[in-house]
Every structure is written in C-alpha cells, then in structure tokens.
Design a binder for these strands. Sequence first.
DNA 1: GGTGAAAAGTCGCCCAT
DNA 2: ATGGGCGACTTTTCACC
Lengths: 150, 150
Amino acid sequence: MDDADRRILRAVQAHPDLPITELAEKAGLSHTPCWRRLKKLEKEGIISGRAILLDPKSLGLVINVFANVRLKQHDEETLDALEKVVHVHPEIVEVFSMSGSSDYVLRVVARSVEDYERFLKKVLLHLPGVSSVNSSFALKTIKMTTTLPV
Amino acid sequence: MDDADRRILRAVQAHPDLPITELAEKAGLSHTPCWRRLKKLEKEGIISGRAILLDPKSLGLVINVFANVRLKQHDEETLDALEKVVHVHPEIVEVFSMSGSSDYVLRVVARSVEDYERFLKKVLLHLPGVSSVNSSFALKTIKMTTTLPV
DNA sequence: GGTGAAAAGTCGCCCAT
DNA sequence: ATGGGCGACTTTTCACC
C-alpha cells in the first residue's frame, strides 16, 4: 500500500460508482494501472466489498437502540454462541465486545419502540448467557458513514 | 413499495454487484421491470447510495471507541454547531443524539489507543458545548453490517 | 507506470405484447 | 406491467512503450 493506493481508496470511497477512467483521473493515474491496483486491493481484502445503502426512514426503521448487554457467564462456549447467533438477526446491525461495564454493545434497528420491546423480550434477553440488557434510545442519527480515513 | 420492491431490496443488499439480469432472477422478475423499479427506488431515495467497504484492520484502524458526550449547554446554536462539525472529522464514523445519560454517542475509529487519546484531547473535548466525554473501548467487532431488514 | 485498442459484458432505453 | 433486443458505454484484457 503506497500513496497511489491511498489516493485510489479515497477516490472510490468518495465516489463509489465512478467509471475507472474518471477514478484514475482523480487518483492521478491512468486507467490500466488504476484498474490493476483496484483489483489488487480487492484481492488482498483491503477493499472488502461493495454495498447498497438503504434509507432507514424510508423503510420505517426509525428506532435505533444501543443495547448494553451484560453476561452472567463468560465461558468460551457462551461467548462463541452469542457471537454466532447475533448474525442470525438482521435487526442487530452492529455488535462489539466491550471493555468496561458492558460485555457487549449491540445496535438494533426497529420500526417502533413497541417493536423494540418485543425484540428485547423475545430475542435479546434470551441470547446465550445474558444477565441484563440496558437499552439507550437514539433520538436522531446525526452522522453515519462507511467511509474510513485512509 | 410492494412485495416485488422488497424482494429486489433484499436481493441487492445480499448481492450488491450482481448484474441486473441475475438480480431480476433472484427477485422473480425479468430485467426491464427490475431495472425500472431499481431506478424508482433510487429516485425516491429508498436506495440512498452505494458504497465501497474497506477492511478497517488492513488500514490499521484497529481501535473502535464509543465516546459518550455530555454537554454543558443545550441551546440550539450549540447543538447545531456540534452536529455540523462532526462531519468534518473522518475518524468520527457515527453520531447519534441520545436520550438518557449521554447527550451524544460517537463511534470513533483510531490506529491506536494513543492516537485516540490525542483525538480526544485535541478534538472531542473541544467540540461545541462539551462538558465531558466518557470513552468505552471495543475489544472486538463481532458484527457490522449495512444490510437493513426489509 | 502509461498508451491505445479491442473483446466481453452491462446498462439504459426503445419497442411490441 | 412484462419480455425482447439493440446501441452506447464500461470493464477487462492485451501488446507495447
């Protein structure tokens, strides 16, 4: 990864659906080397994929909750089970294991507070090893980006 | 938005760079109506855009922090100023205004704990109206998706 | 790395149904 | 609202500087 690679990454992040020729232009290269580098970045996994971004509001997903989860057991099986099962639920969009007072923080999207409450009772509280879930509601999404600083 | 639209959205989310013909197939339509619906979904803003996803680890961005921000002032100017200035810093990838004990939660990426500490001192603590910042470090990213349930 | 060009595949939009 | 098809454009590959 040299500076040209970084310039390419900055350009694709800012303009994900620009044709290679224009991308190359923005990165200060011509199309072939730019394409070669792009492929290399994909193969190496530095570019991990592409995504379509949907507008949560349009889908009625107006509720964003941070669920702070504490466990009663911390054995490996319990952790592995939990870390696997969160992938099954599309309402859970982010999961981090944490230092400090929570064991995990999950970001959960929902259509309404009632919806979230149902999800909390039916799913979150029954995740492997969970002892308590402390929910913080977002009032508004101020910023939300997939663009990383390179 | 009918059921065909939802099938399309599910298909593009799961396979963002599939050619329209195959997408249409997965959604149970043929290419033209699928294409028209996709365009409509984009125009209506339900599809808000595309993105390239980079692997944070490959970029050295191994530190993920939730910064819980409290304000000393809650007047409109302060809030507006803060909500604008977070867009200037690419290290801040998510910002939510919150109910409960924090006014804002920011997710911040960094290359190291020292890096984060610098950012905390130089930027976060000087954001408009901030009285305190409580940082929780993620030990590991378990799940992180842009795919929404439709 | 850059140039140019040509092959393969998609897309965007027309049509007829 | 669906399916077919065609020209325009991109992506991808190549040979060569």
